[in-house]
């Protein structure tokens, strides 16, 4: 523990000056618990190898810190107990930071807020997603999602909001022209509307991750509470990857059209 602490302080000192890379001993390995599949965050490719945004970013972070990464697949229900019983040292598995979990684990800084996006048919007459632009149109959302809350508060006065139990019901009503525009988790919308050959849809406007009160604090890496030093090293590495463009590279790979 002390060793880690010293290392971190040294690392922090380095980071302040020039190079943010922290040297660690070669034999040090961090094991990540991950629950698959959850596309595009973590899943297996055609060859059965783990891949996804979390996996790539996690590996890049370890490389930056100069340690080895291992991934341990663990079901979601037991993922926090597994951390506490030392099956692995951290969880990087699309875990939303919230106060209930903060009681149990220590979170890194958020490394992503999963984006939401607007989807329209390619022949739609909607050309912007401002309040005026959606005046009189019907917005489809999944009931009870953060997109539902956002759309209700921002557009509830000018547009109709149709709430569906599943994304599939929403797609059906988009196809039959009962709903004009969908506001969904980007990965969900991409999987159901964009990647589906039968349909002709596109994203309009930017990916939306703000304001925080609707879209949350985002996903964090979870550590055991006493591993503050380790968490700090990952926070610094994350900062470096954001600065040197590696983060954007990985982000664009999974979250751009």
């Amino acid at each position: 523990m002390n060793r880690l602490l010293t290392l971190t302080m040294m690392g922090a000192a380095f980071a302040m000056t020039a190079s943010a890379s922290v040297q660690a001993q070669d034999d040090e390995t961090v094991r990540f618990g991950v629950d698959v599949p959850y596309e595009p965050m973590e899943y297996r490719d055609a060859d059965g190898n783990l891949t996804g945004f979390d996996i790539e970013l996690g590996n890049a972070l370890c490389e930056e810190i100069g340690i080895e990464c291992e991934w341990v697949v663990q079901g979601w229900d037991g993922i926090i107990p597994g951390l506490q019983s030392r099956k692995y040292d951290a969880i990087m598995s699309s875990m939303t930071i919230n106060d209930d979990r903060r009681e149990q684990v220590l979170f890194s800084d958020p490394y992503i807020t999963p984006p939401s996006a607007w989807f329209i048919p390619t022949d739609s007459e909607i050309d912007d997603v401002s309040e005026e632009g959606l005046d009189g149109f019907t917005i489809g959302v999944q009931r009870g999602t953060l997109q539902d809350n956002y759309a209700t508060d921002m557009y509830g006065d000018v547009a109709d909001i149709n709430r569906y139990d599943t994304a599939e019901d929403l797609v059906l009503d988009m196809e039959s022209q009962r709903a004009d525009i969908a506001f969904l988790d980007f990965p969900v919308g991409k999987a159901t509307l964009i990647d589906n050959e039968e349909y002709d849809y596109q994203v309009i406007g930017n990916m939306i991750t703000e304001p925080k009160e609707y879209f949350g604090d985002g996903f964090g890496i979870a550590f055991r509470k006493r591993d503050e030093a380790l968490a700090e090293r990952f926070n610094e590495a994350l900062e470096t990857l954001r600065d040197n463009g590696t983060y954007d590279e990985i982000y664009d790979k999974y979250f751009s059209m």
């Binding site: 009931r143 009870g144 999602t145 539902d148 209700t152 709430r163 569906y164 139990d165 019901d169 009503d173």
Partner: peptide, 18 residues
């Protein structure tokens, strides 16, 4: 409410989720 009508139950489900 399963077909997006905001009837009494639809309102309750909305407020529950909110």
């Amino acid at each position: 409410s399963v077909v997006t009508i905001m009837d009494l139950t639809g309102a309750a489900r909305f407020i529950y989720a909110r």
